[in-house]
Structures are given as C-alpha cells and as structure tokens.
C-alpha cells in the first residue's frame, strides 16, 4: 500500500522519496487525511519508538523529521479543517538559563507530527513568556525542557506562575536530569523521560 511506503520512506530518512510518494498519492486521489495520519504521523511514532529502544539515534530522528516535514509541506495546500483537525495546542520551550534545545526540538517535531499545533518559544524562556504564550494561543499544555540541573528549579517557578495565572492549562516537564519525583514535587501534571512518551502524555492531557 503506497501510503505505508511513505511511512517507510520517512523512517529511512529519504526526503526525496517522501515528497515523490506524497505527490503521487495526492494525484491518485488518496484521502489527504490518510496520507497525513498513516503516512506521516504514524511514521514519526515508529521513529520515536525506535529511538526509545535504541535502534535509532538523534541524527536519524532529526533527518526523519526533516523528511516528514517535507512531505507535510506538500500536503499543506490540500489540508482543510475537515481533513486535519488540530489535536490541540502546545507551548514548548527550554527554561530560563538553559540553552539546550536538542530534546525540546525532538519533542516539538514529534508533537507536530502527531497533529498538534506547537508554539516553540525557543530557549532561555522565563515564566512570564510561557504564561503569555499559553494565554495568547489558548494552549492545552505547556511543555518545559531543561538539560542543566542548575535550571531545574526554574521549572518550579514557571509551574507556579502558570497556576497563579489561573489558566486552564496542564504542564509537563522533561529533560535528561528531570525525574518523575521532581515533577511531583513541583506540582507539574506530568513528566516524560523521552520524546515519544511526551507525545503520548500530551495526547492524553489534551483529550481529557
């Protein structure tokens, strides 16, 4: 089935083939929604799983995401509100004092791949910016990333600021030094040890 071929091409990071196959399927009249979900979104789930089980690594994830995005660009003009309903809006950023973005970027890519609207604030982001973005974009989830142990306490500040703002948004945290115990301690709504887990957790929180 050609749509599965698209997914395979994403997993093997073949951007040219992804674009070619997406164009072919569009021309053949295949449902846009099917190309998006079975061809592109499912592919990133497979890539995420392979990363979690250690058969793919960061360069491969980034290249697969690039291939997926290329396919998505071909689909975009054909997408309508009926064909692809947003799964919700997520604000994501690396917290103040921390410039590491590799994990955040992977999570953002996978969330986009999963059909979420992702507003990536970048790195070194303070509480005020997270709160403002969550309100402005009517976000369902705010995702905080940190790689430095020194910036983990900032997560607590941001989680507190979001609660104080009184907005109905969930917070999740992640990053190499972060733990579930730390998430509980600071009052976050969830924690994930890896990118696929973050997507799954966010799906559940947005659906709730």
């Amino acid at each position: 089935m050609a749509v599965k071929d698209i997914a395979e091409a994403v997993v093997v990071m073949d951007r040219v083939k992804v674009v070619e196959l997406v164009k072919t399927e569009i021309a053949a009249g295949t449902e846009i929604d099917e190309i998006l979900n079975a061809g592109l979104i499912d592919a990133m789930d497979i890539v995420g799983q392979k990363f979690s089980d250690g058969s793919l690594f960061v360069p491969e994830m980034l290249m697969a995401a690039k291939a997926m995005k290329a396919g998505l660009e071909e689909l975009k003009p054909h997408l309508s509100a009926g064909a692809a309903v947003s799964r919700g809006t997520v604000i994501i950023g690396t917290v103040k004092g921390d410039l590491h973005d590799i994990g955040k970027n992977l999570v953002a890519l996978m969330m986009e791949g999963a059909g979420m609207d992702v507003v990536d604030l970048g790195v070194d982001i303070d509480a005020e910016k997270f709160v403002k973005a969550a309100i402005e974009h009517n976000a369902g989830v705010v995702a905080l990333s940190a790689l430095l142990t020194t910036t983990m306490p900032t997560m607590e500040t941001i989680v507190a600021a979001i609660k104080e703002a009184g907005i109905a948004v969930k917070t999740i945290i992640g990053g190499a030094p972060v733990t579930a115990a730390f998430a509980d301690q600071i009052g976050a709504d969830g924690f994930s040890a890896d990118a696929p887990g973050a997507v799954e957790l966010t799906r559940k929180l947005l659906a709730a």
Binding site: P59, L62, M63
Partner: peptide
C-alpha cells in the same frame, strides 16, 4: 550547534 552537527553527519 548540536542539532546542526547531528544533521551534518548525513548532510
């Protein structure tokens, strides 16, 4: 940049 170097390995 970390992302850039990681992708450079292929590109």
């Amino acid at each position: 940049g970390t992302n850039e170097i990681m992708m450079d390995m292929y590109e």
